[in-house]
Simulated scan of single mutants.
Amino acid sequence: HIRSKHFVHVLYDYETSIMWGCRQFFGEPEQYCILGLLPSYLERPNSSLVHMVKHLIDESKHPKSGFFLSNTQQLSEVLNEMESVAQPTLLFGVTFALLDFARDYPMRLSATCVIETGGMKGRGEEMLKPELHAYLKQQFECQHIYSEYGMTELLSQAYSTNDDVLYTPSWMSAFVRDLNDPLDVQHTGKGGIQIADLANLHACSFIATDDLGEVLPNGGFRIHGRIDHTEMRGCSLLSLSF
C-alpha cells in the first residue's frame, strides 16, 4: 500500500487554510480545549491530519489541549474535567478510536464537539455514517456528532456541524461527475465527488475523488461510500485507452 503524498511548497498556506476553516465553522481556536484521539495517525510523522490537529492544539493555548495515543483513561478524565467547568472543547477522533472510546467510556458531553475524521480501513467492518453517529450520540448523550472531510491531496477541510451534510469554506467547492462519463461534471446531483480547493496554490486544485456522494443545491454535499469496488469505467477506462 502506497500512502498519498502532497509536497507543500509553503506550509503557511496549509496552516492559514486550517485556521480560516476553523474560524468559519467553530470560531477562534483560543476559546477551546482541543483534543486529538488519533492513534496510528500519530505514528506517521508527516500525516496531514496530525499536522492540522497539532496546529489547532498549539493555537488553542489551553493547558489541557493535546494528543492521546493509547491513554484513553487520561482522555476521559480530561473530558470530564472540561465538562465540569463547561469549557468548550473540540475532540477530533478517527472513527475506530472513537468507537472504542465510546464503548469503554460512555459519558455525557454537552460542552464538547465530537468531530469524527473517518478512518476504519483495516480496523473492522465499515459502519454507515448514520449508524456511526447514532451510536456515538447514544454513548456520549449529545445531540450532534460532527464530521471533518479532508485528504492528503487537499489543503482545506469540509465540515458537517449538525447533520450528515458537509459544507466547504468559501475557497473550496464540491462538484459531482457522472460515473460513466468523467468529463460530465455538474454542480448538483449524485455520482463521483470532485473537489476544487483553491488553497492548493502550488499543486493541483481540482481533485477527482473515489467517493460516491451527492451535491445539494445549497453547495453542501453528502458522502455515501466509495467507488473502489465498482467495475472499471470512466476515468479508469480512459487511463487504459492511451
Rank of each mutant, 00 (worst) to 15 (best):
T168A: 15
V50S: 02
I193K: 05
P182V: 07
T152M: 09
R222M: 10
M232A: 07
L240G: 04
I115P: 00
Q73A: 07
S147E: 12
G21P: 02
P106W: 01
A102S: 15
G66I: 06
G122K: 05
L132F: 13
C235L: 06
N200E: 06
V8M: 15
G219P: 08
R23E: 15
E81N: 11
H1Q: 10
H229K: 04
V114D: 07
K64M: 12
T16D: 13
H9F: 14
S241P: 00
K5Y: 14
R108M: 04
I207T: 04
A196N: 07
H1L: 10
R123T: 05
K121E: 15
M172I: 11
M52V: 05
M232K: 10
F140Q: 04
E231W: 02
G93V: 01
V114Q: 02
K54W: 13
W20G: 00
T168Q: 13
S160V: 08
H6K: 13
Y41E: 12
C142Q: 10
P45A: 11
K129T: 06
E231C: 01
R3E: 13
C204T: 08
L75M: 10
D210H: 10
E126T: 04
E59K: 10
R44W: 06
D58M: 12
E77R: 08
R44Y: 13
I223H: 01
P182S: 09
K5W: 14
F221Q: 00
R23A: 11
L91N: 01
E131H: 04
S239R: 08
L11R: 08
D178F: 01
T89N: 13
L183S: 12
G124Y: 08
D181M: 02
C22E: 02
L183P: 01
G118L: 03
M120T: 01
P217M: 00
R44C: 01
L198G: 00
G21A: 15
L49I: 03
R226T: 03
A208M: 08
C22M: 13
D228R: 14
Y12W: 03
N180M: 07
L216H: 13
Y149G: 06
G122D: 05
D184Y: 07
H6E: 14
S65P: 03
